[in-house]
């Protein structure tokens, strides 16, 4: 990436306890250091995506929550999602189908510079992941790997202070999966971002190399 790595601080999940209808779903108390990946593992229904939604600011009010989310020591628990600067990636790239590749990236890019400068930033970002000249392409015409890379770029261009990953590699085929894992973790490392990774794939945890939390629970959700 062309933009300089930003000084980011830790993402802290401080004494977080999430429960539903009086039953405790999960309880986490953990600080993710800059550049570190915390992997939360567990089968579906264990509440791992719930934790991610809480950190991102999307948790449904039917859940009862204790605890706080701190970013660089700042309490962001009550902040709306758009003011948290948490980059989000799902298992689907979810590129906006009505925008071009450049349109998707410009949508993510923070405002501030001139139109030309924004276009240049987008082009440079594309070139860096081997997708030069793709600006005008329709997302529907891209391969799965290309879409995944553009989704990552879109998130990074919004200058997040932490990354939240919800099984981001599970829908890619095996060869592509390794490649994307490396790309995502490298880019997060370069930027010194704390990463919260939620997955049920042990290989994701191994590739991430950081601490792992296992959640119990069976799937009746």
């Amino acid at each position: 990436m062309t933009s300089a790595p930003e000084a980011t601080d830790a993402l802290t999940l401080s004494q977080v306890r999430i429960s539903l209808a009086g039953r405790l779903l999960l309880s986490v108390d953990k600080t993710i250091r800059p550049g570190e990946v915390l992997t939360v593992m567990g089968p579906s229904g264990s509440g791992k995506s719930t934790l991610l939604a809480f950190a991102a600011g999307f948790l449904d009010p039917i859940f009862a929550v204790e605890g706080r989310v701190l970013l660089a020591g700042e309490d962001v628990t009550r902040r709306p999602a758009e003011a948290r600067q948490m980059g989000l990636l799902f298992q689907d790239p979810l590129l906006f189908p009505h925008l071009s590749v450049a349109g998707n990236l410009l949508f993510g890019l923070r405002p501030g510079s001139s139109r030309e400068a924004r276009q240049d930033t987008v082009s440079a970002a594309l070139a860096e992941v081997g997708l030069e000249g793709m600006e005008g392409r329709d997302p529907a015409t891209l391969s799965g790997g290309q879409r995944a890379r553009i989704a990552l770029l879109r998130t990074l261009l919004s200058r997040p202070r932490a990354l939240l990953l919800d099984e981001p590699f599970s829908k890619l085929d095996v060869a592509l999966r390794d490649q994307m894992r490396r790309l995502v973790f490298d880019e997060a490392g370069k930027r010194n971002l704390p990463v919260l990774l939620v997955t049920h794939d042990r290989q994701d945890a191994e590739a991430a190399g950081g601490p792992v939390i296992e959640l119990g629970g069976t799937s009746d959700e």
Partner: peptide, 20 residues
């Protein structure tokens, strides 16, 4: 919820997030 979670304590007080 499943068996593994049933051993978790039931929290008496809950703080609900506000509905926007």
């Amino acid at each position: 919820m499943g068996a593994a979670l049933q051993s978790w304590p039931i929290i008496p007080t809950q703080q609900k997030l506000e509905r926007p």
